[in-house]
Write a protein that binds this DNA or RNA. Sequence first.
DNA 1: GATGAATGAGTTTTCATTCAT
DNA 2: GATGAATGAAAACTCATTCAT
Lengths: 213, 213, 213, 213
Amino acid sequence: MQNEYLVRHKKRPSRREREKARQRRDMLEAALILFSEKGYHNVTMHEIASKAEFAIGTLYKFFRNKEDLYKALILEKTEAFHAAIVEAIGEHDGEVDRLRNYIRVKSEIFRVHVPVIRLYFSEQYGESFNLMAELNDRIRQRHEESLKVLADVFESGMRKNRFRRIADPHALAVALDGISTAFLFRWLEKPEERTFPEDPEAILDILLKGLVD
Amino acid sequence: MQNEYLVRHKKRPSRREREKARQRRDMLEAALILFSEKGYHNVTMHEIASKAEFAIGTLYKFFRNKEDLYKALILEKTEAFHAAIVEAIGEHDGEVDRLRNYIRVKSEIFRVHVPVIRLYFSEQYGESFNLMAELNDRIRQRHEESLKVLADVFESGMRKNRFRRIADPHALAVALDGISTAFLFRWLEKPEERTFPEDPEAILDILLKGLVD
Amino acid sequence: MQNEYLVRHKKRPSRREREKARQRRDMLEAALILFSEKGYHNVTMHEIASKAEFAIGTLYKFFRNKEDLYKALILEKTEAFHAAIVEAIGEHDGEVDRLRNYIRVKSEIFRVHVPVIRLYFSEQYGESFNLMAELNDRIRQRHEESLKVLADVFESGMRKNRFRRIADPHALAVALDGISTAFLFRWLEKPEERTFPEDPEAILDILLKGLVD
Amino acid sequence: MQNEYLVRHKKRPSRREREKARQRRDMLEAALILFSEKGYHNVTMHEIASKAEFAIGTLYKFFRNKEDLYKALILEKTEAFHAAIVEAIGEHDGEVDRLRNYIRVKSEIFRVHVPVIRLYFSEQYGESFNLMAELNDRIRQRHEESLKVLADVFESGMRKNRFRRIADPHALAVALDGISTAFLFRWLEKPEERTFPEDPEAILDILLKGLVD
DNA sequence: GATGAATGAGTTTTCATTCAT
DNA sequence: GATGAATGAAAACTCATTCAT
């Protein structure tokens, strides 16, 4: 999927290139912490430069402007999380195990990357909404892809008569996404109160076992 | 609970009072549209005043500052929605009908009040997060109350053996909230694509009927 | 010096006129307290109206604008104090008694009218300085007149060989004014610490008895 | 009291430092002129920046806010004048020469630094009075110190029987301060009319030689 | 004649971005 | 290539003044 140049590029980044990449990472890291703590508008470019221990001018060498920096930050994280989610679903064989693993990995991401998650959702519902349309489109596209992969699992389970056809597979994907997000958010808000079910299976069970009949 | 005077007072607000209330509504209306379009930080008080067709000074007569205006806007809507949701759940007798009605009314609110819903969620996840703590606390408190009312329905259904005890009632409330929000958001994002299930029952069915067994 | 109309006017003010005068006094009184407490620029016309228990519009019926109100306030007080000072000097016969009485009355004014005195000096040295030229001119003119009256006392004393001709009478007037103001200011700043000489004669003695010879 | 480094540092400020100091001086100079012409509240930060030929942002790099700029201005001048006054009194040997020199240097300051003097007194009596308490305290403290030094001269003269004990030494200090300020103010107000005694001795003589006896 | 709601010009301050060194 | 001083547009908020009722 990557062309020759990029591949070779990745294989043998020159010292300078490695240095550059490290600097870029440091800047994004500093920005991430500040943004998730105080929100996009309450963080200044000077603060970011200062926290990353670069001059303001250097920051602007890497990112055209504040929006650019923000987009790069969100986008890179989104791609990484999406890839992790998709990979997680493919890792196992049985449909139930795939769903179980989806929830497990999603939980892991929420737990380990709290700052990004905050940013990610603030991006989905928040301010920049209409303003950074490009960014939103990409995020939604990735989200749709995840749902599609999830829907495929439900579809597959139904074909093999492992799942009852209680609803459209894609609707089930939306439902599982919604349920897991709802639980994980509760944990995000009050990490100390372990309101989150002990293990992911509890979440999945709600979908698997019906309330009636 | 209100004395005679206040009751009469409410029945016949003086002309001045009615005029005041109308102005306040106009200002909040203008602010709502702008905030939901561009986000809190990208709207100026001058814009709001201008859209509401008042002088900037008049705007400040009604709201001490920008934050005050924003809080009033979010809070009033939150209270109204919360009340509508709670009332909706109480309106019917059977547990299933109550849940069905909850989804129906929630859908109505999402459909009719798109701009507020955008703001509401941007508030829950977005920037102001750490900054307007007071506001967030109130919103969460109301959300918890809704979940409690919902959990009571599940609890009641279980006691009457109408629902199987597949999970903790409160967890089921969180799940139903998460599922319905997920579906409604999809509709919010692309209202034209009727991805939303034809009728609310479809959503509820996902919870009611289990996938396996 | 006053024409017939004004004289009759003063003798028999109609009820309406008396009422008006009382309102005007109330407004100036409120303004005086606020101005001397917080300074001209830190007092709003609304505050003054509110303290005087009038509507803002009514305040503007009496005074064209804020500057006008301020000028009227300072000017009326200045005239009153000037008149009191000049009268005080004329009340006695001997030159020393006249000077003694000057200091006594000046002290009285400082003690009783602290707020005005603050305003008066802030006006002489303070902000409005170049801006309210008209007002300053009048104040200085009155000040010069007082000095002239004082100089006449020194002049008279010298003519009668009661005072030695150690300096120009007008210079002595400036000196006595300066000394008394310096002492009174110390008292104004810290009224509790009785740094002020027990009785006015102590001040005068400094001028009367020389340090050397 | 300063270590080697700091001393050398002071001797050879780097180019950047010298440049910074010059800019700061330029800003304070512009502010001084504007403040003394129009008063604190009638000068905008934009005006100051503009007069000093800097962008408004640059002005705020040097002074946190308007009050900060004002305080720095007044304080630096106050300290300089106080030091000059105290030094002037110490320069000579005989008590009369000391007093004479005090008046001479004070006159010099008034003549050369007219704008600051205006500001200085407007600060002592004017608006900011209750508001910038910190600043006022410092000014008064310095004034008290000057009076103390002056009082010591009178005290010393009395001990040596060069001065008669016509009053408390500190009262005499207040008197001399008051007399000289009064004369100098007359000159400040109308520099063209040389109402100020030809030479300082005339002022001093008023104190030295008594009017009677 | 009194009222006080409405007005909007004007002020302080911040911060993304540039560019000379 | 990095730096950070300088820039100035833009935003929140105040308050003297007006005028319809």
